[in-house]
């Protein structure tokens, strides 16, 4: 079965999810993993979908045209076989919090350090909070450390960035327990 990544974004209002999922339901699509959230004033949907017969984007024809007419942007990506499968990640799971007065490069500099150490970011959220005069930037991310790296080492690595960017950074283990 072919899988597709479907991304939809537009000004938030009630009814977007039902309009999208009605179309998918009528087409005979399955929704596997999905994540939807409000970012700014926009509602953003990311869905991994599958269809027993469809093989490429042309198969969908003009099915998403009604969404475009409602001012939603639609993007469809055909996944290569296996692209829907969640990779198994070994290593410690951690949460990284970064916050401080807003300045350019916070996300880039932090994630560059992580990327260079093969830290795999699994979730990332940022938000601009505070007042207009004193904006504060907050970034929260979850990541899986490579087996050769532990949390204390990562925290040490990020310490120099903390001084350089004048932000607060904490790293802590996420205790995931199977009961």
């Amino acid at each position: 079965m072919s899988h597709f990544a479907l991304t939809i974004i537009g000004r938030d209002r009630p009814g977007i999810v039902s309009q999208v999922t009605e179309i998918l339901y009528r087409l005979g699509c399955n929704i596997a993993d999905s994540s939807c959230s409000i970012l700014g004033g926009q509602f953003a949907m990311i869905l991994i979908i599958s269809h027993p017969e469809y093989t490429d984007r042309e198969s969908f024809g003009g099915a998403f045209a009604p969404l475009e007419e409602n001012n939603l942007s639609v993007f469809l990506r055909t996944l290569r076989p296996g692209g829907e499968k969640h990779p198994h990640l070994e290593g410690e799971l951690c949460m990284v919090s970064v916050y401080g007065s807003d300045k350019p490069g916070i996300v880039y500099r932090v994630t560059k350090e992580l990327g260079e150490r093969k830290v795999n970011i699994t979730d990332l959220n940022t938000k601009l909070i505070g007042s207009e005069e004193r904006p504060v930037y907050v970034m929260m991310l979850e990541a899986v450390l490579p087996p050769e790296l532990n949390i204390a080492e990562l925290e040490q690595t990020l310490k120099s960035l903390k001084n350089e960017l004048q932000v607060d950074i904490t790293v802590r283990a996420i205790e995931s327990v199977e009961l």
Partner: peptide, 13 residues
Amino acid sequence: TMREGCMSVPDYT
């Protein structure tokens, strides 16, 4: 608060 998983509900926490 803990991130829980369960042997009876695999692959989800």
